[in-house]
């Protein structure tokens, strides 16, 4: 779905001693990318940016276009925000804190119901969303408050998936999970992505960026510092100045190249592809 930012400005706590720049003159347009990663240090404006896409924050100046809808600074002009939120699902950081119903099924059904989906379809959607996030039927009637942290997060994500958004925004979805939990979570998003949902993911994990994203935005001090493919980003000479991490596999690959091994950087996404390339590189030695 086409999303455009046109000279968007936003300031937090305006006109108080605690005033802070949120966004500064953001101009963006992303339509064709399937999996967009949003990276940058804490306070660089990543979360502020995604909250503008669904009108949770209104710009102080400038316009955001989402599909055919427009978000402007004036509250009264933004009548269609609910429609945008139906099309763009936003999963907040630590979403497990938004659960409130007495059963998992009811909680997941809450979203579609609010958007006016019929009772029958709501239940169907909720059930299929719960199964999709890797929980089985036995969870339907359980209380969300009795689940483990990882399960709660799955329920919360199911609550957004059940709305069937065309774009899914994820704000650090793996934060606080154990490695096993994060891996499963990423597999889930990958599947959703393959089924045609565009994903925008805020993250600090560069390994994830390299493996999954086809486009990456780097935020810094409320501005877009860089916008490119992950490979171009990590290979660019000024990436170091952003003081962000390198993906582990990428770091190893560049070291190997420095030492003279022939490796195709474009092929490297994760550990498996790295090993593959090392094998090829060594074969060409001999």
């Amino acid at each position: 779905m086409p999303i455009n930012f046109d000279h968007v400005f936003y300031t937090y706590s305006k006109k108080t001693p605690f005033e802070q720049v949120g966004l500064e003159d953001i101009n963006l347009s992303f339509n064709d990318y399937k999996f967009i990663a949003l990276v940058g240090h804490t306070g660089s404006g990543k979360s502020t940016l995604v909250q503008h896409i669904t009108g949770l924050l209104l710009p102080d100046k400038g316009v955001v276009h989402v599909d055919d809808y427009v978000i402007t600074p004036k509250k009264k002009e933004n009548k269609n925000i609910k429609k945008i939120r139906e099309n763009v699902g936003l999963v907040f950081q630590f979403p497990e804190y938004q659960l409130f119903e007495d059963t998992v099924l009811k909680d997941v059904a809450f979203g579609p119901k609010n958007f006016g989906v019929s009772e029958k379809e709501t239940i169907e959607r909720a059930k299929s969303a719960i199964l999709k996030v890797g929980l089985d039927e036995s969870y339907f009637e359980r209380s969300p408050f009795d689940l483990s942290g990882g399960e709660k997060r799955r329920v919360a994500i199911a609550g957004i998936i059940a709305i069937k958004p065309k774009v899914l925004i994820l704000d650090e979805p793996t934060a606080g999970l154990d490695p096993q939990g994060s891996k499963k979570m990423m597999q889930l998003f990958c599947e959703i992505n393959k089924n045609g949902t565009q994903i925008i993911m805020v993250t600090h994990d560069m390994d994830l960026v390299l493996e999954y994203a086809d486009h990456v935005l780097v935020m810094k001090d409320g501005k877009v510092a860089k916008e490119s493919s992950p490979l171009d980003l990590f290979s660019s000479s000024d990436y170091k100045e952003l003081s962000l991490d390198y993906p582990c596999v990428f770091a190893v690959a560049t070291e190997l190249i420095k030492k003279g091994m022939k490796i195709d950087l474009t092929k490297i996404k994760n550990l498996d592809t790295l090993v593959e390339e090392i094998k090829k590189g060594r074969d060409s030695y001999e």
């Binding site: 609910k82 939120r85 936003l90 907040f92 979403p95 804190y97 938004q98 979203g111 609010n114």
Partner: peptide, 16 residues
């Protein structure tokens, strides 16, 4: 802050 966050999360689920 928490109230703000939960309100936004629920607004994303269609709450007005």
């Amino acid at each position: 802050d928490e109230t703000d966050r939960i309100m936004k999360a629920q607004a994303s689920r269609g709450v007005d």
